[in-house]
């Protein structure tokens, strides 16, 4: 008798387990996942940045001149700075001479579009990029150490060495964006689009 009862109870218990299990599976399949709360419009993490914090980091310069600081520089001053701080990696007068490859590459060369090596004169489409890059990353061993006037002067020197501006130019925020680079006309935006065509 006891055995039979146990068997019946066991059977019923098994059925319950099965059905519970079943409901779980069904529930998982049918009920889409939901968070306990709706996604807020804003999470409210982070804090407003102050004007001073933005100024401290906002060092970029755009082709239209936005971001260029006050100050000015000329070719003569630029050459002095170049000889002391840049020539060791970029060569005397910015040129590749001899067989040993310059650590920083040549900056001055033939202005012909097909010329090698690629230099500011034949491969840089915007003069503003020169200011931006020198100020943020050069010289390699002391990045960010040059004053704005020094960067203007270096830009003037390098643009003059590449025969893009005259020897008497005084560069500032107004005229640097107006410098037309010889390579500008060569640049095209990406025209690859995937698909069958090899570009």
């Amino acid at each position: 008798m006891k055995k039979r009862l146990l068997f019946i109870f066991g059977f019923l218990f098994g059925l319950i387990l099965l059905s519970v299990n079943d409901t779980c599976v069904v529930a998982q399949k049918r009920q889409p996942f939901t968070d306990s709360v709706k996604k807020p419009v804003k999470f409210g993490f982070g804090r407003p940045a102050t004007g001073a914090e933005i100024t401290a980091w906002d060092i970029d310069v755009r082709p239209d001149g936005k971001g260029l600081p006050a100050g000015q520089g000329d070719v003569k001053k630029g050459k002095v700075i170049y000889d002391t701080k840049c020539a060791v990696c970029h060569g005397l007068n910015g040129r590749q001479t001899g067989a040993v490859k310059l650590a920083g590459g040549a900056l001055v060369g033939d202005t012909l579009a097909t010329a090698k090596p690629k230099t500011i004169g034949n491969y840089w489409p915007y003069a503003t990029t020169l200011f931006d890059y020198i100020r943020r990353a050069m010289p390699y061993n002391l990045p960010g150490s040059l004053t704005n006037n020094e960067v203007y002067s270096l830009s003037a020197y390098l643009l003059n060495a590449n025969k893009i501006v005259g020897a008497d130019v005084v560069l500032d925020a107004k005229n640097l964006p107006k410098v037309v680079m010889p390579a500008k006309k060569l640049f095209i935006m990406d025209d690859r689009r995937g698909g069958a065509e090899i570009k």
Binding site: R62, P63, I120, Y123, W124, T128, T129
Partner: peptide, 11 residues
């Protein structure tokens, strides 16, 4: 509203 034309995306 426009690209910056940084050194790495031009030269």
């Amino acid at each position: 509203e426009e690209p910056y034309m940084t050194r790495e995306e031009t030269s």
